[in-house]
């Protein structure tokens, strides 16, 4: 009898051989995320006179599988800012909790949460950059919408590498290819913000989502859209793309079985 407690209740070495530790990785690099798993596709956003509008569809894909069709990828931060998440959904959830705990902490001050969208964007970009520098990235590309310290509409992007940029209209993922040209045509960069109405901005985003639904195989026709103005956030999470027309599909030739 082996009297050492750690030996109790496990197969005897002399009968079954020593325990096989080989499944436990003891050497080699520490494994971190090297590719995303469940992902969201594009985020689109546009500034208008007195605010910012931002939208995403409600799909989370598992590779090419449309895995979850009611995923809300626009997350609010207090009543001041919206973050639109593209990329890994579990990393989005981690960041959402991180931001929620920050909002709670900020509210302990009698002045409440004083952080605006610009502050939030700076913070998020630093989180992304820190994690990429540790080779343990948060696999997201986000847009942050709200207001800056001067009370001007704010829209900016941050990605898994910590890269940041700002523009009157932005889109992540597939949207960078398909939505940005639409938005640039509707609202040229030189156009003063005063000339872009909230209605036009929202309509433009809906058009972008429709085009994305037509052409992005990882998208869905259910979407969320948020408008941030001085009055607060107006977030709609169960919208449906209206007025679809697949007539153009009839004219596409050369793909799949159809060759003539």
């Amino acid at each position: 009898m082996n009297h050492f407690p750690e030996a109790w209740g496990r197969p005897r070495n002399d009968v079954y051989g020593a325990y096989d530790h080989s499944y436990l990785q003891t050497t080699g690099p520490k494994a971190h995320t090297s590719s995303p798993a469940v992902t969201g596709t594009s985020v689109v956003g546009v500034k208008f006179n007195g605010g910012v509008a931002i939208a995403t569809d409600n799909l989370a894909s598992y590779g090419s599988l449309a895995r979850f069709s009611d995923v809300k990828r626009l997350r609010t931060f207090g009543d001041k800012a919206i973050v639109g998440f593209g990329g890994d959904v579990s990393d989005m959830q981690y960041l959402d909790r991180l931001l929620a705990s920050m909002d709670i902490n900020e509210n302990y001050s009698p002045r409440g949460n004083m952080l605006n969208a610009k502050n939030l964007h700076t913070y998020l970009a630093k989180v992304f950059y820190k994690r990429r520098s540790e080779f343990n990235p948060l696999w997201n590309h986000v847009l942050v919408a709200g207001f800056d310290g001067e009370g001007e509409p704010f829209l900016s992007s941050a990605d898994l590498l910590g890269t940041t940029f700002s523009a009157p209209h932005l889109a992540t993922g597939f949207g960078a290819h398909l939505a940005v040209p639409i938005l640039r045509r509707k609202f040229p960069e030189g156009m003063p913000l005063e000339e872009i109405s909230q209605e036009d901005a929202v309509q433009a985003l809906k058009d972008c989502l429709k085009v994305l639904f037509y052409r992005d195989a990882r998208s869905i026709d259910k979407y969320s859209i948020a408008v941030v103005t001085k009055d607060g956030i107006d977030l709609k999470e169960d919208e449906q793309i209206q007025g679809q027309s697949w007539a153009f599909a009839e004219r596409i030739k050369g793909y799949g079985a159809q060759t003539v």
């Binding site: 690099p29 090297s34 590719s35 990429r132 080779f135 990235p137 590498l161 890269t163």
Partner: peptide
């Protein structure tokens, strides 16, 4: 290969 290679590349060219 026993060791999984990182496929994450931490740089991009802007």
């Amino acid at each position: 290969a026993n060791v999984k290679q990182h496929s994450f590349y931490p740089y991009t060219d802007n």
